[in-house]
Amino acid sequence: MPNDFNILHQKIKLGETVQINMDIARLNTRSKIEVPIIVSRGKAEGPCLLLIGGIHGDETNGVEIVRQIVAGGLNKPEVGTVICIPLLNVFGFLNQKREFPDGRDLNRMFPGSNTGSLASRFAFNLMSKVIPKVDYCIDYHTGGAQRFNYSQVRIDRSDEETLKLAKIFGSPYIVYSKSKEKTFRKSMADLGKKVLLFEGGKSLNLDKIVTKVGVQGAINVMHYLGMRDFSSNISKINTVIPPIIIQSSNWVRAKHSGMYRSYISAGQKVEKGVKLGSISDPFGDFESVFKCTQEGYILNSNHAPVVNQGDALLHIGFE
């Protein structure tokens, strides 16, 4: 890495922290939509780590994690470079929606096209103007709608280096999850970048425990990569309670429509035969209880009080 680190036509010297605004598009009123990117370089050359939140505009907990990292000065390395993008999908954030104004899911548009849809152009600009500098990435997400994800890191099964990084991150669960085509994670992996996809919390919600795990994970990874000495910030709990590795998982879906009550919590281990929840009508005539069919761990729990037949209620992982 040269002493002058060029990104978005701006040179950043060793020891500097600079905020750059990536100017990609405008609102219908012609007002600019700029994506703030905070680039912090250490006093010595080293790896480049990207911390990114808000690929989905309603996943506010990921935004909060990266925001806290920047606000606390934790993004300033002694070695190498940390790039923070707290909020990529500004459009969705303004509208408190997952998608772009064109109705597309940004995380299904990578690596994008400079002549494609609005979301595709956003993806293209990120991949072409920022990602070439990046070696490692932590991509922060939450559960969609009212589905709460217990803190977990998702990785591809075959990547041993990423597995090691996931263990260093220190979330309670590591979930083997194949990258889907046209996602940010898949496009990064195709370029040889190492990505940890963190899932925690639910959309349009801030959870203090999830935020703490996400911030601590970034600290742990930076320390491991030799970017900054965080010895005093590293919790010893990671060596006492290793993460549980989830080999496979499946969703429990509603067999009926109605009012939903969950009997368990996200993160909980459940035994075969235990009652997971019930669905009833609103009038007191009908109630159906459903049970666990296999021992596992609750990775995601739907917090919605009313569900439709076929809705995802619980995501259960298996070792």
Rank of each mutant, 00 (worst) to 15 (best):
V39C: 06
E45L: 08
A44V: 08
T60Q: 04
Q19I: 15
E45I: 09
D58E: 07
E59R: 03
G54K: 02
I52W: 01
G62N: 04
K13L: 15
I20Q: 07
R30T: 15
P47A: 04
Q10E: 15
N21C: 12
M22K: 06
N28Y: 08
I55C: 05
D58M: 02
L14W: 08
E59G: 02
I7C: 10
I55N: 01
I38Q: 00
I7G: 06
Q19T: 15
E45Q: 12
E45C: 09
Q10V: 14
Q10F: 12
D58K: 01
D23T: 14
A44L: 09
L14E: 11
I12C: 11
E16P: 02
I38R: 01
Q19F: 11
T29A: 09
A44G: 08
L49G: 00
L27C: 09
T17Y: 03
I33P: 02
L49V: 06
Q10A: 13
D4R: 13
L8I: 14
H56D: 08
P47T: 01
I33R: 00
I37K: 00
N6M: 10
G53Y: 01
A25K: 06
I12F: 11
I33Y: 02
Q19H: 13
M22P: 03
L27Y: 11
K43C: 05
H9E: 13
A44K: 06
N21H: 14
N21M: 15
N6T: 09
T60I: 07
G53V: 03
N28V: 07
I7V: 15
L49W: 00
D4H: 12
N28L: 08
I55T: 05
H9Q: 13
I52V: 06
I52S: 02
N6G: 07
H56Q: 14
K11S: 15
L27D: 08
S40L: 02
L14F: 12
G57H: 02
R41I: 03
I37V: 15
L14R: 11
L50R: 00
A25N: 09
N6H: 10
E16G: 05
L27P: 03
V35G: 00
P36G: 05
V39Q: 03
I37M: 07
A25L: 10
I12H: 09
I7Q: 10
A25G: 08
Q19D: 14
G46N: 07
G54D: 02
H56V: 06
K32H: 10
I24G: 03
N61K: 05
E45V: 08
T17D: 06
D23K: 14
H56C: 08
